[in-house]
Nucleic acid binder design. Structure first.
Lengths: 227, 227
DNA sequence: TGTTCTCATGAACAATTAATGAACATGTGC
DNA sequence: GCACATGTTCATTAATTGTTCATGAGAACA
């Protein structure tokens, strides 16, 4: 089935022209003639691309762009008669993905629509690097650690320490390496501090802190995170 | 620190110009003068965006574009002196993400680079237009917030802040991320301002602002909207 | 042009949270 | 049992965060 394209233009002639041209290429096309209708259609019809003329009555085209960006990442291709550099910069920074100056060629618009569609299919494949060790989950993009599904609150230092150890799971990290990585070179002798934080971390993430299963001690050397 | 931009241009003058302009904005810039070098740098240096001039010796610019697309999705912005529609269509269909005609304005190029970077860092956002969290309702297309059915008046900044946090519900957003998203890069150090707005928002949407249930503090990191 | 209003900003201070360092406890190998 | 390394607890200090309020910029209005 063809992808959905919402055309927003107040001039009926232009709307018809675009609708015809795009439909002929197999896209499903809807036309909105003002900002209110555009927002409404964007919510209800969920287009895959929006082609937005800036010269709108009622709500300004840029405002439409900003509002849609408040809740949706749908690609927006702006059409405008104004070719000033600042106009382009403003629209692009407000969330538009592309800016075409009228008059434009239909083939170019079609090519730019293909680029936009290519982007959205790509984005949906995004995966997140979440580390899982049994019941322990370290969601680095969200900076959230859970144990058995329960959120665990870690202080910044505790989190950094866990992140360092878990991202080198299986390897022994020496005291010195850890101290330098987290507190900097000037602290690299401060073993007592490291011990305090290891204790606190274990208390928070180990089922039985006295019998650690995640953070293992390598006597005389450092610590190792169990894979 | 700054994102990496690979500039591919055989004219030394143009290369220098771009390097200067982009470096001034805080980007890390490398320049390649032919196709071979461009491919090499793309593999080894892993740039975040490639700015590619089409008029290259040895390997044609379009060929560089095609080859990079064989293994990478890095955004490619093409620069060209040719403004024929078919030239644009060809480049865009070969994998280019944007096409600028020389001469172009530096501000426009910078804006289009920001668009490209936005695409690659695009975080997953709830695409549900209206968000509901218990008694709290956030109608993003209409920009209306209600608590227990009652309209809540939010200033523009307060609304943007609430929208940003709630659109990433469950995820921790760092102070820096929030400040950049709402006030722009130049404010990214201005924590006091952010605190004031967090306080005001809590006063308006939290049943008990001293015991927040929606906007949670992640000390040392940022804030998180409770899912 | 002045008046009123809203909102953003920055300073001052209070409240909260985290880091630090010392003291003491535990365990392990000899 | 004796060193030595490691673990734990806790009070103190430092840093971060929350709150209030005065100021001033800018918009809306007559």
């Amino acid at each position: 089935m063809g992808e959905r394209i919402l055309v927003v233009d107040d001039e009926p002639q232009m709307g018809r022209l675009l609708k015809t041209g795009l439909s002929a290429r197999g896209y499903e096309v809807a036309v909105a003639v003002d900002g209110e209708e555009a927002l409404d259609q964007a919510v209800r019809w969920k287009p895959d691309v929006i082609v937005l003329d800036l010269g709108l009555p009622l709500i300004d085209g840029l405002e439409v762009c900003r509002r849609i960006r408040g809740w949706s990442q749908v690609p927006i291709i702006v059409l405008s008669a104004r070719d000033g550099e600042q106009d382009k910069v403003e629209a692009l920074d407000l969330g538009a993905d592309d800016y075409l100056i009228k008059p434009f060629g239909m083939d170019e618009l079609l090519a730019r629509i293909r680029v936009a569609l290519r982007h959205s299919t790509r984005a949906s494949v995004t995966e997140e690097p979440v580390l899982t060790f049994g019941e322990l989950r370290i969601d680095r993009p969200r900076r959230i650690v859970t144990l058995k599904g329960q959120d665990i609150h870690l202080t910044p230092t505790e989190y950094e320490l866990l992140r360092l150890l878990s991202s080198h799971a299986g390897k022994v990290l020496t005291h010195r390496t850890i101290l330098r990585a987290i507190w900097g070179t000037s602290y690299e002798q401060d073993l007592p501090t490291l011990r305090v934080f290891i204790t606190q971390l274990r208390r928070k993430i180990e089922p039985d802190p006295a019998q650690p299963t995640f953070i293992l001690t390598e006597p005389g050397i450092g610590y190792r995170f169990q894979m």
